[in-house]
């Protein structure tokens, strides 16, 4: 009877407690992984032959860019589920992920700019990769402001879900932009069809940082979704019981 369990955990009241139990584990894991990732980034990974030490920006830039794309896809999936099955929790999850996705998108743009300046001589160029990533940032901002602008949560969820689903077309455009167009931006850092071209320690540093970002995102999104649940369900009996205990 897995169906029963699924319904049980998709109830905001149950998920509130479950999320609370999962947060510390992911938070601690994230702190450890960030420490290990930064150690590899600065002390283990060798100096790049072409870019010197400036390349070390890759260890925050690439994981942030991956996260910004992946979080958007996850948001779109949650939004789709919310639209199709009218589940409240999935819309809340999409809402909880959006600010962190926007943050990682901003970090990718910012660190990219600080990498572009010493390497290309420009803070910004209007090439396909950078422009499509900027559009992703605007999609996040659009999702957040649209949802904040609509008073009725149900209608806000539906409007947000539509923008998330329509905007997801931008993600493959970002990913393949370096292949489809001639861009100043270098190609994909990790290819699934070719052997890795970078030093193993560089690859390891990037992957550890990426997993650190992942665990951070899970912890922070669960934290945020609990606040959203509490805000929306405050009129229910279980929520007032929690509030009574949290005095």
């Amino acid at each position: 009877m897995s169906k029963v369990n699924l319904y049980k955990f998709s109830a905001p009241a149950t998920f509130y407690g479950l999320a609370g139990q999962m947060i510390p584990g992911f938070a601690i894991l994230s702190a450890i992984l960030f420490a290990a990732g930064l150690y590899i980034s600065f002390f283990v990974a060798p100096t790049d032959a072409q870019q010197g030490e400036a390349y070390r920006i890759i260890f925050i830039h690439v994981p942030a860019a991956w996260m910004s794309m992946f979080i958007y896809v996850v948001m779109a999936v949650y939004s789709g589920i919310g639209l199709a099955f009218n589940t409240r929790l999935s819309a809340m999850m999409a809402q909880a992920l959006a600010p962190t996705g926007a943050l990682f998108c901003f970090i990718a743009l910012f660190t990219g700019s600080f990498w572009g300046k010493p390497m290309w001589g420009a803070w910004w160029v209007w090439d396909a990769r950078l422009t499509s990533q900027l559009i992703l940032f605007f999609l996040y901002i659009g999702f957040i402001s649209l949802q904040a602008a609509i008073e009725d949560p149900k209608r806000a969820d539906r409007a947000g879900a539509l923008i998330a689903l329509v905007g997801v077309i931008n993600v493959p455009i970002i990913y393949f932009s370096v292949k489809w167009w001639n861009t100043l931006h270098q190609g994909a850092s990790i290819s699934f069809s070719k052997a890795p071209t970078m030093a193993h320690t560089m690859l390891a540093g990037m992957l550890v940082m990426a997993v650190a970002c992942w665990t951070y995102t899970i912890a922070i999104a669960l934290y945020r979704v609990r606040l959203i649940i509490l805000e929306r369900e405050r009129h229910t009996t279980w929520a007032s019981e929690i509030l009574g205990g949290a005095k």
Binding site: E53, R56, I57, F106, I107, T111, W115
Partner: peptide
Amino acid sequence: MGGYAFYVWSSFGVSFAL
């Protein structure tokens, strides 16, 4: 940072500050 201190530390500093 091999002469790239401003760029490298700005990137990491701002990211973790955010």
